[in-house]
């Protein structure tokens, strides 16, 4: 009978336990080792293979709600790319907050390097419509983004003039919540053949294992 009772306790007691569990490590941090998983190693090596001047598209496809999970990932990837002197095109396809995070994070990381805007990197901002801009960038990125995030026309920017569509891009890296990573995989990778790396929240990871196996993705994310 006692066990029965234990099974039907008020859900608020569970909530309280969760809250305490989450608070303790913050008030008294405990150091735990972090081991990178195989897919993470995959992206690392792919970036290592890039040569200075190669172009990478980095898509911020998450909102503030996923920041705790994805900000460290985006920062690590950007630092790695800029260290390799790779040119980075930043876009955002996720409607809510993606572009705000892109503005803040890109500014934060690029300030650590000596980079020229419009040449070494560009922040093109957000475009509505999910798959529509993704597809359209296969033909022309400039048509989709006639202006960058600060409404400066992209015409004349060396990086935009030079990197015309996916054909000129080595890897698309998306930091994605929800379905957007999948769109990059089965639309951009499947139809345009460009490598796609998805850094995703844990909830999407189990499904991505199926895509990873079929070679449609190079990795799934730092965890």
């Amino acid at each position: 009978m006692k066990i029965q009772k234990l099974l039907y306790i008020d859900r608020r007691i569970i909530y309280l336990l969760v809250a305490i569990g989450a608070l303790i490590p913050i008030i008294r941090p405990i150091g735990l080792p972090v081991v990178p998983s195989a897919p993470v190693q995959g992206l690392f090596e792919r970036v290592e293979e890039l040569e200075p001047g190669d172009a990478v598209m980095l898509s911020f496809d998450y909102g503030p709600s996923s920041e705790p999970e994805l900000n460290p990932m985006s920062a690590a990837i950007m630092r790695h790319l800029f260290m390799r002197e790779v040119r980075v095109m930043v876009v955002a396809i996720f409607p809510l907050g993606g572009v705000q995070i892109a503005i803040r994070e890109v500014a934060r990381i690029t300030s650590e390097f000596d980079l020229e805007y419009g040449v070494d990197y560009v922040n093109l901002g957000y475009k509505d419509g999910g798959q529509a801009p993704m597809k359209a960038m296969g033909v022309s990125i400039q048509d989709v983004f006639p202006a960058d995030v600060e409404t400066t026309p992209t015409e004349g920017m060396p990086i935009v003039e030079d990197v015309r569509n996916y054909g000129d891009i080595e890897v698309v890296i998306t930091l994605a919540t929800g379905i957007i990573g999948e769109w990059w995989a089965n639309l951009v990778n499947a139809q345009f053949g460009v490598d796609v790396a998805v850094g995703c929240t844990a909830v999407s990871a189990p499904k991505y294992y199926a895509y990873l196996r079929s070679g449609q993705m190079i990795q799934r994310g730092l965890q």
């Binding site: 569970i14 969760v18 809250a19 909102g63 503030p64 709600s65 705000q100």
Partner: peptide, 18 residues
């Protein structure tokens, strides 16, 4: 907007547990 989104999302920790 950002803290509201993030907090709403973080409620999932409790709901996953229950």
């Amino acid at each position: 907007v950002s803290p509201l989104q993030a907090t709403m999302f973080s409620l999932l920790a409790f709901y996953v547990a229950s």
